[in-house]
Design a protein around this nucleic acid. Structure first.
Ligand SMILES: [Mn+2]
Ligand SMILES: [Mn+2]
Ligand SMILES: [Zn+2]
Ligand SMILES: [Zn+2]
Lengths: 145, 145
DNA sequence: CAATAGATTAGAATAATTCTAATGTAAGAA
DNA sequence: TTCTTACATTAGAATTATTCTAATCTATTG
């Protein structure tokens, strides 16, 4: 097992710093804290409020405004995307590739559906002057009868 | 051309009254005004604010709270459905059948895609304990480059 | 370090929507 | 018809999610 001289635990932090720099974002304490929560392997669907709480629980101190700023900056930078399934809150998705979602309204839960599994046929072509930016499928779930 | 003794112009109003009664809703002045705007043939995608303005322009006097109440009552009654494409405002759709949408963010415009034209293959089955309530496709549009 | 562009923050502000509690009205009974 | 009342409407206050402001920090570079 080879490694640089740096502590093992900080390797992901270094990756994250590089990632932020690559996106033109300064690697501040707050962005690193949120980036760690968001980009530690598992794909996630978060709400600003929920992420703020989670950051607070892990000891990070940052304002909700910063969470919003950061989520938007990450989104603009292509590190996150937004998913619209509910009028109340916005969800931010760490999976920026083409994929779809199950949404269980009663649990406020999003589950990924891999994009390559799904084939959509028969879509009309985009109206004149418009291009298709992305095709999103949301499968709404309800508790089994 | 046969008809009852009623004035021709009021026929749609009578239909509407029947429709409201059938949904268990009293045919009040406000509900009739909104129902006329919503259910006069063409399928529509409206915002509470926009519908309120439109009603005001056609001379109806009713509060924005009533527009929200009515849209929700109509939705619960199955006369409308909601479409989620944007975090800022909710859209209500007079087309309650299975169908999909183009959404042009830059124009805040929804366009129907008939449901029977579209075939979606390869969706995983619903997670345990859940049933699929509906499958919605949103095709996001951007102005042609 | 010093300078500064960029970032964070508390709290005010805004936008959409919902709630409250007072007032009005549709519909059936008498 | 008029009475009764359950249901509906309303103005305005309240709530929630989110954004803005303008003051205070800090990452970066020289
Ligand atoms: Mn909202
Ligand atoms: Mn909102
Ligand atoms: Zn996802
Ligand atoms: Zn539609």
């Amino acid at each position: 097992m080879r490694s640089t001289g740096s502590k093992a635990a900080s390797a992901p932090k270094l990756d994250l710093v590089a990632r932020l720099r690559g996106a033109g974002l300064r690697p501040t304490r707050q962005r690193i804290a949120l980036g760690r929560l968001l980009f530690s392997g598992i794909d996630r669907h978060v709400t600003a409020e929920a992420l703020h709480l989670e950051a607070a629980r892990t000891g990070a101190e940052l304002s909700l405004a910063t969470v919003y700023n950061t989520l938007h900056q990450f989104t603009t930078a292509g590190l996150l995307r937004q998913v619209f399934v509910d009028g109340e809150k916005s969800y931010f998705d760490t999976n920026t590739g083409d994929h779809h979602h199950f949404y269980a309204k009663d649990r406020e839960t999003l589950i990924d559906i891999p994009g390559d599994a799904v084939v959509i046929d028969g879509l009309p072509k985009a109206p004149a002057g418009m291009d298709i930016e992305r095709v999103e499928v949301v499968v709404r779930l309800k508790p089994k009868a």
